[in-house]
Design a protein around this nucleic acid. Sequence first.
DNA 1: TCAATCCGGGG
DNA 2: GTGTACGGATTGA
Length: 748
Amino acid sequence: MTVPDPLLFGHDATPGIVAVHADLSGRALVWRRAGDDVTLEQARFRSWLYARDLADVEHLGGRLAWDNDQAPLGVRELSGAPGSLRYLLTAADGRQLRHSVLRGASHRLGRPITSLHDLRGYYSVGAVEQYLMASGRTYFGGMAFNDPHRLQFDLETTSLTPDTGRIFMVALRDNRGFEQVLEARQAHQEPALIHGLLAVIAARDPDILENHNLMGFDLPFLMGRAEKHRIALTLGRSGGPPGVWRVQDGRSSPHWACAGRELVDTIDAVRRLDLPSASLKVVSQLFGIAPEGRVYIEGAQVAETYRTNPALVRRYALQDVEEVEALARRVLAPSFALAKMAPRPYHRLPYAGTATGMLEPMLVRAYLQAGHALPGEIAGHDVPHQGGTVHLYAQGVIPRVVKADVASMYPSLIRHDRIGPACDPLGVFLHLMDQLTALRLHHKAAAKRGDPGEHEAMQSAMKLVVNSGYGYLGAGRMALFQDRDAADRVTRRGREVLAQVVGALRGRGMTLIEADTDGVFFSTPEGWTEVQERQLIAEVDALLPEGVSLEFDGRAQAMLSHEIKNYVLLRGDGRLELRGAAFESSRTEAYGREFLQRALRCLLSGDVPGVRDAYLQSLHALDTRKCTNAEVASRVRLTKSPEQYEATRPARQEAAYEALHRLGRSWRAGEKVWLYQRAGQGLTPLDVNPDGRDYDVKHYAAALVSGYASRLRKGLTPEDFRQVFDRSQQPGLFDRPFGAMQPVWEPV
DNA sequence: TCAATCCGGGG
DNA sequence: GTGTACGGATTGA
């Protein structure tokens, strides 16, 4: 058994840590689990702070002790380059240290300074991070995802805000077989319900509380209602401060924490996945984890359904927490794995940035442990950082398309060319990139073999951090170990590699379509098989520098190349893939989407008469009002409140607001409304007549060409395009038969 | 074209 | 006050 790398996993392997609470007074509460037992360890730690110079603490005089880790306030000079953060200030009480620095800085600058972050030349982190970095401990050593006691709870309420609604039900479950539904049929029972919830949590005593949108809904709602009833929200574990507090992290959406239990939100992890929706129900169906016989109740109907069919709502609520548990196992596992590496509490990781939130704390921990200075600020660049290349070589419909890409290009270049930050004399950055990559491959292989253990989560956690390496180098002053020149070298090498790929493909007779940072679309000669395509890619790969490899990334029957990053692929199995804003805009109306699907499929199959038919049929559906208002309506977001709009209205009238205004309706800022062009009336809310057909045919017939057919323009000659999308059925003098037309492409 | 800003999702 | 940051789509200069 190999010893885990201390730079990755921390230098103290204490197992079973499930929660850490620390404050600047130097007290750390560490809850550790062994089997069913949880013990609370009360630890002391010295608060620490990196400084470039001692100007702000000069006023302490002899009260600042040199090289004495027992003194109330101490300082050590660390080895490091001039201009680096070479002084490590430490204190028995971090509040006193911070106060001393702020006092000195206020005096020096002649204005009150209230935050260390308003000062240059310092590096500081929160108390828990200080403790974890200094002690070398991490969460969850030796534990599997389901070893901690995890409890899910979900509120059912009569509205979305605690000002207008109340809680009438709470569903709870945990990973020890517990399940319960608490209810408050009448409003006056709500305080008892809240007390009941707190009592269950205290009695079950879980390590982790989970829910979907916990931070954005359940917790704020619960806090709002508890406040209304003057109930102290004691969610924390005994031994620590009892309440819930806001985690200051500068984000617009607040997050909350309590002592002794990790509050984690599955929605944060889901948002990392770039799915079409982050909704619990949608994601659960996507992952196939929705329970058998799942009850679905529209949000606004839940309270009403409860009155008539409480049993159904109970089942619904329990299925919610069941789904959350299954979802958590799936999406929070990488954060759980990361918590074993990064010196950060578990609850921060689902929404922490991968670069400054994970990689950087690991870098700092290594420097702190080595007793080495941290980088100081370096002068900014005036030339902007140049990123990857995007180049369009051909537009139109191109047959036999192959996608090839350079696997993990930036991480590969970083490792192979040894590109790390110049301000990292200990070489921690490259060490982490190397070790994370090596271990990731190990876990990836183990996951593939189906070995026992959480290999998949480990490999995806490691991938997350490795992939943040390049972005971290170029992150500017956000990143302590940033290095613009290094980031430039990475992208420059990337451009060289891509150019080499493009050149080699072109030299072998391939038609280039589009190249983007680390991948390229090209067209192969007629009659080529996938085997030949893969051979070609292997051949080009052999020309590339060691450490990077070109891989086959799929093929398609044909591609419509429209604009950079806007294209459509027709796959071998008939699937149509639309990419880019031109093809998958959220504003797309149903009738237009349907037309596009049909027309694109025909165009990419070389069937121009089919495109013509699709157009005529869509037109016909409009003309004969086969489409309903709902099918032509589009959803518009109203960003201005009625008051705001009233203020700008005299200067500029906007159709969407006017539509509501005309009907004397009100709206909320941020609200989305479905609107359609009503014949003779202009833009009108859909709900006036959703199933009707009184839309403005002329408007939508014109929009069919200008808004949808126009996206096929590159695939036909201008003359053919005009003819295919000509309303009149009569052929013109110079028209040629549609059957004689073929899709076209041309070099850009 | 770019940077500021808004939103997600929850009942 | 345990004191800094999610990603994308959309909007405004």
